[in-house]
Amino acid sequence: MTGYEGADLAIALINVVLLGLLFVIGIAIARMRSLFAIVMLSGIYSLISATWFVAVDAVDVAFTEAAVGAGISTALLLGAMLLTSRTAKPEKKAMSLVPLLVVIATGAMLVYATIDLPAFGDPESPANTYVGTDYIERTPEDIGVPNLVTAVLASYRGFDTLGETGVVFAAALAVILLLGFGERSLASSVGSRRGREK
């Protein structure tokens, strides 16, 4: 795969360490009750997954994960957390048995499914043949843009991106419809607090 001996081993080691960190953080999030700590840990989880995406050469995905997962959603979750209580209710012990079984069964099925997956970076895999090679061959003369991801995202699949932008816009509209614009509720809550202080 790479030029010198031991590189594959180093890459495997990096993957194991990063995925192990993700596993530990996942367990920690599941066992915690403080919502602030959970939000912070989920931001760290996103940042480590972004690092791992870089390790498997998916730089654009890593960038998006770092900007959206570790940046925006952490800040938005903090904002949402302030509207509710600071800690989650403790779970009853007996109640967690059925979800545990479901999770184990789903995990076993997923592991079973990975046996059939093509090897990582396999040039013969369905994802890398057909339309994928087409994009790589045709982008220089069709689009003339060095970054293939941008060419696919904005030009070949412009309709998808238009729809995604619409989804983001619709999400903002839905939140505004449910919670209000923000400045009016801020003004009224500040006003009521001043009234109480008098």
Partner: peptide, 12 residues
Amino acid sequence: SMLSIFYAFAGR
């Protein structure tokens, strides 16, 4: 959109 969502949350 992101700022509108944040303002809607944080304004309350």
